[in-house]
């Protein structure tokens, strides 16, 4: 039988190797951690100040029983966080300015912004 996969064998291998490399644990420099809390469908703090041009790690803990989705178009981030659990999201390095974020599941109340200074 004619094998359609044959011509792409090399490409497939390259893709596999590339993805294996991308996922391999690389040594990481110390990263600043900022904490964000979701409670009663609100973000605490609702304004989070972070330094400019620095990569930071957001540790978001959802203390509600309901799930929430952390979302920001300005930061290009979205992540589902189940109720009573924590999530990690990396942001930056960013230029000074304001970057709004919201909870997609409760967008009316769950709002906040990252202020980069």
């Amino acid at each position: 039988m004619y094998n359609v996969f044959q011509p792409y064998k090399k490409t497939i291998w390259l893709l596999l190797i590339f993805s294996a490399l991308a996922y391999s644990p690389l040594s990481k420099a110390e990263i600043l951690i900022f904490k964000l809390k979701i409670k009663g469908h609100l973000f605490f703090p609702s304004e989070l100040e972070i330094p400019a041009n620095t990569k930071v790690k957001l540790s978001i803990s959802n203390e509600d029983n309901t799930p929430e989705e952390f979302e920001s178009y300005e930061l290009n981030r979205e992540k589902v966080i189940p109720g009573k659990s924590k999530a990690t999201v990396f942001i930056g390095p960013l230029k000074p300015g304001e970057y709004p974020f919201f909870g997609e599941f409760y967008p009316k109340t769950a709002q906040g912004k990252v202020v980069v200074k």
Partner: peptide, 9 residues
């Protein structure tokens, strides 16, 4: 993968 810090920001 950028959000997870596996691709450069």
């Amino acid at each position: 993968l950028t959000q997870a810090d596996l691709l450069p920001s």
